[in-house]
């Protein structure tokens, strides 16, 4: 997913996503494809329908430009991941990723 100046690639494990704890990995690169480090980020996982509690988690940088967070997905179905925060340069990050078809345990 691209934005002016940087792009964010998201992955989820396990694959395919299942009910339970999941690890989200975000890879942020700049326009030249170089990793963007030093970002301060947080994630929120929401179900696609009303009535479910969102899960919030802090994001930690595991290597330059690569960030990880662990979220709980307590129900099968479609989830939406919201990533927000700031890059080291001060640029705002607001991204939304769909995680479709999370499977039952």
């Amino acid at each position: 997913m691209g934005s002016p100046g940087f792009s964010v690639k998201q992955e989820i494990t396990p694959q395919p996503a299942r009910v339970g704890r999941s690890t989200l990995t975000f890879t942020i690169t700049d326009a030249a494809g170089e990793p963007v480090d030093g970002a301060h980020l947080a994630v929120e996982a929401d179900m696609s329908h009303a009535g479910m509690k969102p899960d919030f988690a802090d994001v930690t940088e595991t290597q330059p430009g690569r960030y990880e967070a662990e979220v709980a997905l307590p129900m099968a179905g479609d989830w939406v991941i919201l990533l927000h925060g700031k890059l080291g340069t001060g640029a705002a990050v607001e991204k939304q990723f769909d995680v479709r078809g999370v499977r039952p345990e």
């Binding site: 009910v19 696609s48 129900m75 099968a76 179905g77 479609d78 479709r100 078809g101 039952p104 345990e105």
Partner: peptide
């Protein structure tokens, strides 16, 4: 198991 999905036919 309840499963609310908008993408029924995605497999």
């Amino acid at each position: 198991p309840m499963e609310m999905r908008a993408t029924m036919m995605s497999g």
